[in-house]
């Protein structure tokens, strides 16, 4: 997270029109701009190009106008990506640090194996979000979802923090089934009520403590600022806090 600069509204040093540009060329262009010292890039007309910003290891801000394709920011380590639209599957796959802000909805498998940095999604997310997130020393990955989520939210979670606000889309359940299945680290905060039957067998509900409230206030203020949204409807006391009851859920599966 140390490498992630705050998003600032300044004049970008380069704009690229991605209309009809193949992803390989687009990513090459971005890397060349970065090599020339540019640290604020705007991509216009993005339409499904995959792998944008994959594996980038430097602090750079990339604003994406249009819908980026799968694996946006995979393995990335430091950049800030701002998507002024929806995003597809695999956002922030195995990312190490940096920040991805998606104004609209995002697809399945967001933040898989993520180890650090932040992903903010204004709208809904699909299935398998935050699977196997893990934290390490000062690296604590955070996913905040403004809308609703599908099945397997936080499955196999080993560390980090996930916040689900559940705003809008009242015809959809707040979250799907198997919430936190196999979870053995980290914390999930859900704004609203989730039935026990929707949760994995490895999670328990805990009371909010002062440190939780402090974290929520800070992260929600940041989310609100980045997504330019007012969170007056979010009540701190309405959050459910879910944690695993063991760091070793499968310790008794074997006999010798």
């Amino acid at each position: 997270m140390a490498r992630a600069p705050q998003i600032k509204q300044e004049e970008a040093c380069a704009r690229l029109d991605a209309t009809g540009v193949y992803y390989r060329e687009l990513n090459q262009n971005v890397r060349e701009l970065m090599a020339s010292g540019c640290r604020d890039i705007v991509l216009d007309g993005v339409n499904g190009q995959r792998y944008i910003a994959d594996g980038l290891m430097e602090a750079v801000k990339i604003t994406i106008n249009g819908v980026p394709g799968n694996d946006l920011g995979a393995f990335m380590d430091g950049p800030v990506l701002l998507v002024n639209d929806n995003a597809q599957d695999g956002v922030g796959n195995t990312m190490n640090s940096g920040k991805i802000v998606v104004k609209g909805h995002a697809g399945d498998v967001i933040g898989y194996g993520m180890r650090g940095g932040k992903i903010f999604v204004g709208g809904d997310v699909g299935f398998r979000v935050g699977i196997h997130m893990k934290s390490y020393r000062e690296q604590v990955p955070v996913i905040v979802v403004g809308g609703r989520a599908g099945d397997f939210f936080g499955e196999y979670m080993a560390g980090g923090l996930m916040v689900l606000l559940g705003r809008g889309g009242a015809d959809r359940p707040l979250v799907g089934d198997y919430l936190g299945t196999g979870m053995h680290g980290g914390t999930i905060y859900v704004h609203g009520e989730v039935a026990e039957s929707q949760m994995g067998g490895e999670v328990r509900r805990f009371d909010l403590e002062d440190s939780d409230r402090e974290f929520l206030r800070g992260i929600l203020a940041e989310f609100s600022a980045d997504l330019e949204t007012d969170l007056a409807d979010i009540e701190e006391d309405a959050f459910m806090k879910l944690r695993p009851f063991s760091h070793r859920p499968y310790g008794n599966m074997y006999c010798y």
């Binding site: 994959d54 799968n70 695999g90 898989y112 080993a158 859920p249």
Partner: peptide
């Protein structure tokens, strides 16, 4: 902490998904 490796890669449920990870790694 136990190091639990899930049975599948949860970003790979098909040959198309495998292709996606292969090329994500190539790009990276």
């Amino acid at each position: 902490t136990d190091a639990l490796s899930p049975a599948p890669h949860h970003d790979i449920y098909s040959i198309e998904d495998l292709r996606q990870l292969i090329y994500a790694l190539k790009e990276a």
